[in-house]
Computed example of a mutant assay.
Amino acid sequence: MGSLTDDPDFRATTFVVIDFEATTPAGHPAQPIEVAALALRYEQGDWVEVGRFASLIRPPEFAPGTRFNTLHSGLTSEHLASAPTPAEALGALDRRFTADSRYLLVAQHAATEAGLLYNQREHCPVAARIDLLDTIPLARRMVPGLADYRLDTLLGHYSIPLPADRHRAAADVRVTARVFTRLIEDADREGSVRDLTELVKVAGRTAKVGRPAQGELFTL
């Protein structure tokens, strides 16, 4: 049997690595203040970037940027005051997805991105319906025995330098993409994940919009 990257379904899929930065107001769900996405396809034995997107997002008045946001990411209230609205920023992202392509979103701790997409689904109805892959369970399968599976730990394991702007969405997307592609290389080399269906069983998360009541993991 061939490797994961020989699988026709894998090759037919565009993997969109996505990351949000958010603020979490008391009594409300997290509100996005930045989003970035990086689209990858596996073609002719290598990864090819086929698109990227990044935007600040102006939070609602009840959820202003906080001192924690500034300390964490460097984003200030001044940065966010003139940012696009959620409808503008997420609508622009949504229009990047085409009806004739097959997508999976990829995220580190994908539950966070799945929740933000669900809560913003009126602004990004296409993206909110795309299922996800989570790098954490995939890393647990491919590199067992790490002390934890935080992004910084995985970057250290693969000797990927921390970006200077760590915790900005575009920077985190870039390094998450590098972790994801290294995990796929491991899966190819070891043969432990043989096709897209198995990859989804290991690391898949159904989009909350399309999730059945029991919340079971989708299968292809």
Rank of each mutant, 00 (worst) to 15 (best):
L56I: 01
H72Q: 13
A111R: 14
Q44C: 09
G74K: 05
Q44S: 15
E113S: 09
G45T: 08
D46L: 08
R150E: 10
Y42T: 07
L133S: 08
Y149D: 11
E61F: 00
A54Q: 15
A54S: 14
D94Q: 11
L90V: 08
Y103E: 08
E88V: 09
S82Q: 15
L154W: 00
F62N: 13
Y118E: 05
H109N: 15
A26C: 04
H109G: 14
L138W: 02
C124Q: 03
F62Y: 15
L117W: 08
F68C: 12
R67F: 08
N119G: 06
L162Y: 02
A83P: 04
L75W: 02
T70A: 12
L75S: 08
G115V: 06
R41N: 05
L162F: 06
R96H: 14
D152Y: 00
T112D: 10
A22Y: 03
I18P: 14
A99M: 07
L56Q: 12
G156D: 14
R129S: 13
Y118T: 04
C124P: 01
R96P: 11
P144F: 05
I33V: 15
G156E: 13
A39K: 09
E113F: 07
G115S: 13
S82R: 15
P144A: 11
S73A: 10
L90R: 12
D19M: 03
A37W: 12
A128S: 15
R96M: 11
T70L: 12
P137Y: 00
D19L: 02
P144K: 12
S55L: 05
E49I: 04
D19P: 05
P59H: 03
L162N: 04
E43R: 09
L146E: 14
Q108A: 06
G27V: 06
G27S: 07
D100V: 06
A164C: 06
L93C: 04
E49M: 10
C124G: 00
